[in-house]
Design a protein around this nucleic acid. Structure first.
Lengths: 235, 235
DNA sequence: AAGTGGTCTAGACCACCTC
DNA sequence: AGGTGGTCTAGACCACTTA
């Protein structure tokens, strides 16, 4: 089918069977040999598909017993890199934005270093309030090197920036982030609809394209009552 | 060598070469064919080893170009499941604890559900202040089903609980956690050496053994100024 | 054109768990 | 004993990047 690798197609079929409850929580899946036969692939290819779902935390394997569906409340997994829009759609919330600022400037050294550009090089600064179902959830300050996307300001900068990066072949594929607890007041609290001071999750994130080039540096403040991080951990 | 899978041995050899700087940041590794030959294994097996290091964020691949060493400041990665003690040793801090409470009780339904036990079943409740280099960092409330480790209270409950789990063949291998920002006051703030109220990272974590049995449910409060989460993200 | 990583095949033997 | 997942081989063809 259309050049998409077999293991990805199989992975998505299996994912659908899980989320649609065709394979129920704690239920054993058919053996790998049986599934490989069903999809007409080698066991190695079938395993490649299951590997991904295990890494995502949807399935778990037990040697000698089988592969099982993990019983879990539906949650957005934040150990994956995804945009605010995608994350909210996954939670069946409608994302939107309020644009506060969009201009080019020379950033402070912290930003230059995070983006791995020389000090003095200009960046775009996009400040937005992010809403879910029309309720303010986060205050986002995004920084993007001007040389990567010269005509950024002519784009629709109010919606997903990730869509713009994609147009330029700079789809973010990896990233790192640091999460802290902070208390905010003043302007940011006001934009979030909070009486200051209030605890927030403060996130700094670097998003990188496949070539490892830093595409975006983000400083984000999330309302504690409307946002939490969920992650699956492995030893 | 001693029944350890080839891909794990190769992975550790490669890891050493990276941390010891034999392969330098941003440097291209030898091709997969060359490395497979060096270790006298198939390319598939070699790839299995490299897959792990890529997942850990030590390496990255670029189709058509090669496999490269990621240049990153050393940080503790919190997308892995590890005990407070191990996490601190990785940061070269000396961990210690102050035991506040250790007793059996019937927990509230939230705890029973997290541990997947029937309501009314007893659990051990271990409350500790965790310190790094003798400074309070976290307030931990751990819950462990009594039937899993009957003589828990006779063990050294002040140090790593993970060591006790291991004795019983219940080494935690997976887990899930939710991270929130909160403000704490009262007793907890006092134990953390804080003038109330103060923002903290609030973490709820379920740790599971290989069999998926929940071994521990943890409620933790981390001082915002002494603890942050660092994670590597993938698309 | 040559080298790189991405995918895939068709087998094999093993350790482990359950019956 | 039979089924399960864990590991491994020895090839193959492809898309992509760089020179």
């Amino acid at each position: 089918m259309a050049g998409i690798p077999a293991y990805i197609q199989i992975r998505e079929v299996l994912r659908n069977r899980i989320v649609q409850g065709k394979y129920r929580p704690h239920e054993r899946l058919p053996g790998e040999t049986a599934l490989a036969e069903e999809f007409s692939v080698t066991r190695m290819t079938l395993r490649r598909a299951v590997d991904d779902l295990v890494a995502e935390g949807l399935l778990y394997r037990s040697r000698g017993r089988g592969t099982f569906v993990r019983a879990r409340p539906a949650r957005a997994d934040h150990s994956r890199l995804q945009s605010f829009c995608d994350a909210n759609r996954a939670l069946q919330r409608t994302p939107s934005s309020r644009l506060l600022e969009a201009r080019a400037l020379v950033p402070d050294p912290t930003v230059s270093e995070a983006l791995e550009i020389d000090h003095g090089q200009p960046v775009f600064r996009i400040v937005r309030v992010r809403l879910a179902d029309n309720e303010p959830v986060a205050y986002h300050e995004a920084y993007v090197p001007c040389h990567l996307i010269p005509d950024m300001l002519e784009k629709n900068v109010e919606d997903s920036l990730y869509a713009i990066y994609r147009e330029y072949g700079l789809t973010p594929t990896t990233g790192e982030q640091v999460v802290e607890a902070r208390s905010v007041g003043g302007e940011i609290a006001r934009h979030l609809g909070l009486a200051a001071p209030h605890p927030v999750l403060y996130v700094e994130r670097i998003s990188r394209a496949a070539s490892e080039v830093p595409v975006e540096f983000l400083r984000a403040y999330y309302r504690a009552d409307r946002y939490s991080l969920y992650m699956v951990l492995k030893a």
